[in-house]
Design a protein around this nucleic acid. Sequence first.
DNA 1: CGGATCGTCAACCGGATGGTTGAATATGCC
DNA 2: GGCATATTCAACCATCCGGTTGACGATCCG
Lengths: 117, 117
Amino acid sequence: MTDPLDTVFAALADPTRRAILTMLLEDDMAVTDVAEPFAMSLAGISKHLAILAGAGLITQEKRGRVKWCKLEPDALRTASVWMQGFGQFEPVNLDAFERFLEAELRQDGSEAPLQGD
Amino acid sequence: MTDPLDTVFAALADPTRRAILTMLLEDDMAVTDVAEPFAMSLAGISKHLAILAGAGLITQEKRGRVKWCKLEPDALRTASVWMQGFGQFEPVNLDAFERFLEAELRQDGSEAPLQGD
DNA sequence: CGGATCGTCAACCGGATGGTTGAATATGCC
DNA sequence: GGCATATTCAACCATCCGGTTGACGATCCG
């Protein structure tokens, strides 16, 4: 019932919450700033943030009177790993994974020359 | 509103539906057979299958009076790619991805010797 | 034809979800 | 202290969701 996958996937199923996560990719944000671009009450956003935090996708730290929201991409790994089980039996066509690898190598191999895409 | 990610993630958020997907990994199945291991009415399972089909995670083909359910792992790729955006900016610690790669290489390199884990 | 099997439809139910508003709680500042 | 800011709490609402039951439409088979 309380399988972590349940809460993570449920949290990801809402477009507002995914948008919030995308915003948090750039930087940590205060609740009010998260809410600003949305046509929704602050309380509504606060609820969404609580759900994201409940799923472990973000953490919130209160400093002074402002509560900072921080992305926790680790929580996505469980879900990602689960999903991989379904790609694995398929013939290799996961170009996205290839791109991921390239980024990995580029980062790890310091200065491996990279020919344009 | 009808972002495909919404429906895919929502479909994945239910443990029964994930279990069904896992079952379908092994082979295509008839609706009745899908329902068999669950302590749930056939109509209940039928609804779950409709949701999975709506998300594109499975397809259903009626042959005679039996309706066959087939896994469509392609639908997962969209979601998988979306999720990767959140792992990518992180330092490399995605051991699961490494395992995935090993499996890939093993499959692709035909008989590359593999030292034990 | 008549019966059994396969599956969905329709109506219903309780509980969760996404959203609102208004009051309440902290905290910072003058 | 007193006011503004930041955030949540509580109550409420409409809707969706997961599940049931019972009736129904197809299809196979004797």
